[in-house]
Nucleic acid binder design. Structure first.
Length: 269
DNA sequence: ATGGCCGCCCTAGGCGGA
């Protein structure tokens, strides 16, 4: 079973690149963030043609929005509003026997002071609410759990290109990092990326549209994949499809891919 | 040390991204 998570920064603009990604990586489940389209205008047929038999969408006009496509049927779906916001930032499904959560954490604006910047205060509230909600989930889990998405925090020193320089930059401040860690501890979740790439090695999923992508130096790890401890022994692979960032008309995020020893989400099942 | 770009929307400059 292969899961792919990608902040596409407009699903309509990125359709051609998405088709290419799906052809190349053959994911069984695709989780998208920043779809930027209302549900009625979501390009559903394109996903059917790519072989996804079921689709769950949670969109809004212009901003945010998440979607999950699966090669197996989706047996339940849920949208969770967190931190008193109606923004479409979460969608979960049960498909192929897994409970899959797709999350888009608020970016937080430019100024890393919650008293002066309401967007940053909202981001911190959202991370707190995510942790509190996770703590309320029933134990034991009915289906093994997965959480993927653009969490907009690069927690570790080597999740950014220059730790000292980015300490006061949103995505790498102490306040965000400790709240993201609290959310991870709330289940607790296993950080898939760092199961496969040691913490002392650089690992990025995002490179700004500004600046020089070609050097590939100034990246951050903002996109994450977490699994519950029941799935940890079944982890088989992890990769960031870095080359996608260099394609024509790219998103600023690269797809994150997780391989599990788990029955494929096959339409015939 | 800074500014750089991209996609959205009542098509045009402002907003959000991070």
């Amino acid at each position: 079973m292969r899961l792919l998570s990608w902040n596409v920064n407009s699903v309509r603009v990125r359709l051609e690149a998405l088709r290419r990604v799906v052809r190349k990586y053959q994911p069984d489940v695709v989780c998208l963030q920043e779809t930027k389209v209302v549900d009625a205008l979501f390009p559903r047929e394109a996903f059917t043609r790519m072989g996804f038999v079921d689709l769950a969408v949670a969109g809004q006009k212009g901003y945010h929005g998440v979607a999950i496509a699966s090669r197996a049927s989706i047996t339940s779906r849920h949208r969770q509003a967190l931190a008193s916001s109606e923004d479409q930032r979460h969608l979960s499904v049960v498909t192929a026997g897994l409970e899959i959560h797709n999350v888009y954490v608020p970016a937080g604006g430019p100024l890393p002071d919650p008293r002066l910047n309401p967007a940053f205060a909202h981001k911190l509230d959202y991370l707190r609410a995510l942790a509190a909600w996770t703590r309320s989930w029933p134990e034991p889990e009915e289906h093994p759990r997965v959480l993927v998405g653009d969490l907009n925090v690069a927690p570790l020193e080597h999740d950014v290109w220059d730790h000292r320089r980015l300490r006061r930059t949103i995505t790498h401040t102490e306040a965000e990092v400790s709240l993201l860690e609290a959310a991870q501890d709330a289940l607790p979740w296993v950080d898939v990326g760092r199961r496969f790439v040691p913490p002392q090695e650089k690992l990025y999923t995002w490179w700004s549209h500004r600046g020089d992508w070609r050097s590939r130096m100034q990246g951050r790890r903002l996109d994450h994949a977490w699994v519950s401890s029941a799935l940890a022994p079944r982890l088989r692979g992890f990769q960031v499809a870095v080359e996608v960032r260099g394609w024509r008309r790219p998103s600023d995020h690269a797809p994150v891919i997780v391989d599990l020893d788990w029955p494929r989400a096959d339409a015939a099942r």
